[in-house]
């Protein structure tokens, strides 16, 4: 499995990367950890003409507290997310979900930006960032913009990112009472069904909830029916009732040898319940 030939440029700054992207046109792709792109290239499912390496851009790397928000640079690796004391303290859901991605080697190399931009239907982080109501920052030739995570994922491997744009970072207000639960596909460890839940709790009662699913459908998305069912529920006691049928609201559900549509829908409910219970246990 050998990639086709391409040209390679290492960008010294985001500005330079943007210029290279413009120059390269539609045949240009960004490369950071490469753990989404390189496997595709080896199978010749992706044949870019130009790779622009942004892996070394320190300005895109790291987990930082900015005011009352947390900002995560696009080239931050899953391992760095998992090890981040800041995340463990203030948004453990992201550190925990990152720790469950793939395996140690993949986490050492794969980046949050790559995972989000590639938008594999079974990727874990998209659901987590939707649950955290993260804003995704994008820079292009015409300036910068932010997109709510819930609007960023459009379809299978399809996101709100144009040719010539760079996903630079994500930021969110940390939530402690949030959790992610996934049923891994047993070979790839991608999520067959994964649900991320962020709760606002008061005296054991849910005041607000954001719930997002990945793995089951073409792309990560919110589960509004579960969110409304959770509001006002006493948790964790009411978790099962609120999450019952959680998967049934999805328009489209993947099916393959690892799980039929019926199974995945049922697993969405199971993972939702487990995530709610874990999130609620955090108060």
């Amino acid at each position: 499995m050998i990639p086709t030939a391409f040209r390679y440029r290492r960008a010294g700054s985001v500005a330079e990367a943007l210029a290279l992207l413009r120059e390269g046109g539609p045949g240009a792709k960004l490369l950071a950890g490469g753990h989404s792109l390189i496997p595709m290239m080896k199978q010749r499912l992706a044949e870019p003409e130009l790779l622009i390496d942004i892996g070394g851009l320190l300005e895109l790397c790291g987990v930082h507290a900015v005011g009352d928000a947390i900002e995560v640079g696009a080239t931050t690796t899953h391992a760095d997310l998992a090890a981040s004391a800041l995340l463990r303290e203030r948004a453990p859901i992201l550190a925990e979900a990152a720790a469950e991605i793939g395996d140690a080697q993949v986490r050492n190399r794969g980046t949050i930006g790559g995972s989000l931009a590639h938008a594999d239907p079974g990727a874990d982080l998209p659901a987590v960032l939707i649950a955290l109501d993260a804003a995704i920052s994008i820079t292009g030739a015409d300036g910068s913009r932010t997109v709510p995570a819930a609007d960023f994922f459009r379809d299978i491997l399809t996101v709100d990112l144009e040719d010539g744009e760079i996903l630079t970072d994500v930021s969110f207000r940390p939530v402690r009472s949030a959790a992610y639960a996934k049923l891994p596909q047993r070979a790839s460890r991608f999520a067959l069904a994964g649900v991320a839940v962020a709760l606002e709790m008061e005296d054991g009662v849910c005041r607000a909830a954001r719930v997002a699913v990945t793995g089951a459908a073409s792309h990560a998305q919110r589960l509004p029916a579960v969110e409304s069912a959770l509001v006002g529920a006493r948790l964790p006691e009411g978790a099962a009732a609120a999450c019952e049928g959680a998967g049934d609201a999805l328009d489209f559900v993947n099916a393959d040898l690892h799980g039929s549509e019926e199974y995945r829908r049922a697993m969405v409910a199971v993972m939702a319940r487990r995530a709610v219970e874990s999130a609620a246990a955090r108060g």
């Binding site: 490369l31 490469g34 080896k42 199978q43 050492n108 190399r109 070979a187």
Partner: peptide, 29 residues
């Protein structure tokens, strides 16, 4: 393997384990 699964190609890159079949040599410059 050719899908970054088996780990036979694991080396340390800047002290961290990586699958060297999923890294271009130019990235290690």
């Amino acid at each position: 393997c050719d899908t970054s699964q088996c780990g036979a190609c694991t080396v340390l890159l800047d002290g961290r384990s990586v699958k060297s079949c999923t890294v271009f040599a130019v990235q290690a410059d």
